[in-house]
C-alpha cells in the first residue's frame, strides 16, 4: 500500500513542531548569551553556567527536589501497585468503591484544590497532634498522594491485560501466592512499574502548586525558586538551568528510545 502524507498535513505538523521547539531553542540560545538583557546578543559565554554552579540557593533547592522526588515516587510505586493489584485481582472487598474513587479523583481535581485542602489538613493535624511541621515531610506526603494515583492507573491498565491463568498455573503447581506474584506477575508488570516510577519522579520534580501550599518557610523546592525568579522577569541563570534540564530529559528519552529499538530488534530479528 502506498502511503502518501498530504502537503497540508506535513505543513501543519511542521508548524506544530516549530511551535513546540522554537521557545526551547530560544531559551537554550539565551543561556549562552553574555548579555543579561534578553533583547541583546552580547556574544557567546558560559558565565551563567558558572554562576549557576555557585548559586547555593538553586543547588540546595535542586538537591531537596531530587530527594523528595526519589522518596515520593518510590513510596507511590509501592502504594499504587498495591492499589492496582487490589482493584484488578480482588473482585469484591470493603472500600473498593472508595479506593476506585480516590485513585481517579486526584487526576481530575485541580492541583490548587488538592494543595489547599492538604495544607488545611496539615495545619489541623499540627493543631491536634503537634505534628507534622510543614516542610520536606509534608511535601513528600502530598506528592505520594497524587503520584499513587498515577501509578495505580498505569499498573492497573497493565495488570488487566496480564493473564491470570499464569498466576493460577504457578499456584496450582505449588507456588505460594507471594512466590507466584514475585516470579510471574512482577516481571509482567515491570515495564509499567518503570514507566510509572519515572512519571511520578517527573511529576514530583516539576510540581509547583501543591508544594507551594504544603511547604514550610525553610523548604523551597526547585520549581518554587524558579517560579519566584521567573515571576520577576528574565533571569539568565534560570536559562542555564533550563538548558541543563532539557539536555537531561532529552538524553533520557533518547536512551529509552534506543533501548526500545534494541529490544524490538531482538524480538523480530528479520522484520
Amino acid at each position: 500500500m502506498t502511503r502518501r502524507v498530504s502537503p497540508f498535513l506535513m505543513t501543519v505538523f511542521g508548524i506544530g513542531v516549530a511551535f513546540l521547539y522554537i521557545p526551547m531553542l530560544v531559551l537554550i540560545a539565551y543561556s549562552f548569551n553574555a548579555s543579561a538583557l534578553a533583547s541583546v546578543w552580547g556574544g557567546f559565554s558560559t558565565n551563567w553556567y558558572v554562576a549557576l554552579a555557585h548559586n547555593t540557593q538553586i543547588l540546595h533547592a535542586a538537591r531537596l527536589s531530587l530527594l523528595i522526588a526519589v522518596i515520593a515516587s518510590t513510596l507511590a510505586l509501592v502504594l499504587g501497585t498495591l492499589a492496582a493489584i487490589a482493584l484488578v485481582r480482588f473482585a469484591r472487598f470493603r472500600g473498593r468503591l472508595l479506593l476506585t474513587g480516590m485513585v481517579h479523583a486526584p487526576l481530575v481535581m485541580p492541583e490548587i484544590i488538592t494543595g489547599i485542602t492538604q495544607l488545611l489538613l496539615f495545619v489541623s493535624m499540627l493543631q491536634l497532634f503537634g505534628w507534622p511541621h510543614r516542610g520536606m515531610l509534608t511535601i513528600v506526603l502530598s506528592h505520594v498522594a497524587f503520584c499513587t494515583a498515577y501509578v495505580a492507573i498505569t499498573v492497573q491498565a497493565r495488570l488487566q491485560s496480564a493473564d491470570v491463568a499464569l498466576e493460577d498455573a504457578a499456584m496450582d503447581l505449588g507456588a505460594r501466592p507471594l512466590e507466584a506474584f514475585w516470579d510471574i506477575t512482577l516481571p509482567i508488570i515491570r515495564p509499567a512499574l518503570v514507566s510509572s516510577w519515572l512519571l511520578s519522579f517527573t511529576l514530583s520534580l516539576d510540581d509547583l502548586v501543591i508544594s507551594t501550599f504544603v511547604s514550610g518557610p525553610r523548604a523551597s523546592t526547585l520549581p518554587m525558586i524558579i517560579y519566584a525568579k521567573v515571576k520577576l522577569g528574565v533571569s539568565p541563570d534560570v536559562n542555564a538551568l533550563a538548558t541543563l534540564i532539557i539536555a537531561a530529559v532529552g538524553a533520557c528519552v533518547l536512551i529509552a528510545a534506543v533501548m526500545a529499538r534494541r529490544a524490538d530488534k531482538h524480538t523480530q530479528p528479520a522484520a
Binding site: V78, L79, G80, L82, A83, A86, F90, F93, G95, L98, L99, M102, V103, A105, P106, T114, T117, Q118, L120, L121, L141, S142, V144, A145, T148, A149, A152
Partner: peptide, 15 residues
Amino acid sequence: VAPPLVFLAVFFLIP
C-alpha cells in the same frame, strides 16, 4: 488493600 486505602483516605479524602 489497607495501605493505599488508608494513605489516600488520610491524605486525599480527609483533607
